[in-house]
């Protein structure tokens, strides 16, 4: 079994984690974007597998999902892309998707294929801690981490979730769904502080982050920052020509301004 790469993203540094929706605008661009994101300073990349009804996502990422689906993107084709990308880079890669496409593909096949192609982790917003057992059997056997979430409403669940978390913990900065926000008011430091008392698994914060100032603020107490909608928006605007634009944006975020 290949050693899981996720820990490399957090080694001796704060991780910058961009998200892109695989197949938006097409899979050739996805490959180009991954390499450009790494070049621009990304430490781990989240690749979205599109789903028709992404209930944890805001309108920007919903639209990206639908664009990818309209282009005929499937899990099978995304695995082909990942396989190809892996011949060029060893950057940690995790999927972000919803449970139904994975369930339909078959849990066993899916996680085997993740391991074979070089996917290090899977983020599935609609599988909370209580339901994870049905996939952990297959993910663990294949050395793929299932990333757990903490939310502003997690309260008494923080310790239980953090203790069992693998790879990294996705801390939702605020209530609601993904998407750009101007202000983040949740008491993130307290949530992460409680998690860190029971686990060494790094905590990365996502939902609504889009400025270098926010990244700076978050890195005071978190191990990484996740940025999705802001990047997807650039891809929405420039399509196949987005490479240099997202690279420029990620550089500015990575250098905190």
């Amino acid at each position: 079994m290949m050693e899981n790469r996720i820990k490399n993203a957090f080694e001796g540094q704060k991780a910058f984690i961009p998200f892109i929706s695989a197949g938006d605008p097409d899979l050739e661009s996805t490959e180009e974007f991954v390499l450009a994101l790494e070049e621009a300073g990304a430490d781990l990349i989240e690749l979205g597998i599109p789903f028709s009804d992404p209930i944890a996502d805001g309108t920007v990422i919903q639209r990206a999902n639908l664009r990818a689906l309209a282009n005929g993107v499937t899990i099978e084709k995304i695995f082909e892309t990942v396989k190809h990308v892996r011949t060029k880079t060893q950057i940690p890669l995790v999927f972000l998707t919803y449970l139904n496409p994975v369930f339909k593909y078959g849990y066993e096949n899916f996680f085997e294929k993740c391991a074979q192609t070089g996917i290090d982790g899977v983020i599935i917003p609609d599988i909370p801690f209580e339901e994870q057992a049905e996939i952990l059997e297959y993910s663990e056997k294949n050395g793929v981490h299932v990333i757990s979430f903490l939310a502003p409403t997690s309260n008494d669940r923080i310790e239980k979730i953090a203790k069992n978390a693998k790879g990294f913990i996705y801390v939702a900065s605020s209530m609601g769904v993904t998407g750009v926000r101007s202000e983040i008011t949740t008491n993130l430091a307290e949530i992460i502080g409680r998690a860190k008392k029971v686990t060494k698994t790094p905590c990365a914060v996502g939902f609504g982050i889009n400025t270098p100032e926010q990244v700076k603020e978050i890195e005071k107490f978190a191990d990484g920052a996740i940025v999705g909608s802001a990047i997807v928006k650039i891809i929405e605007e420039y399509g196949k020509e987005a490479t240099e634009h997202i690279a420029k944006y990620v550089k500015s975020m990575k250098n905190r301004g």
């Binding site: 909370p128 209580e130 339901e131 209530m175």
Partner: peptide
């Protein structure tokens, strides 16, 4: 398996944000 099952059906497949609410 989680709560709220009718045989294999049902469950609580929702984001963490809503778990304490349900």
């Amino acid at each position: 398996m989680s709560k709220g099952r009718f045989g294999i059906f049902g469950g609580q497949y929702i984001p963490e944000t809503l778990m304490n609410e349900v």
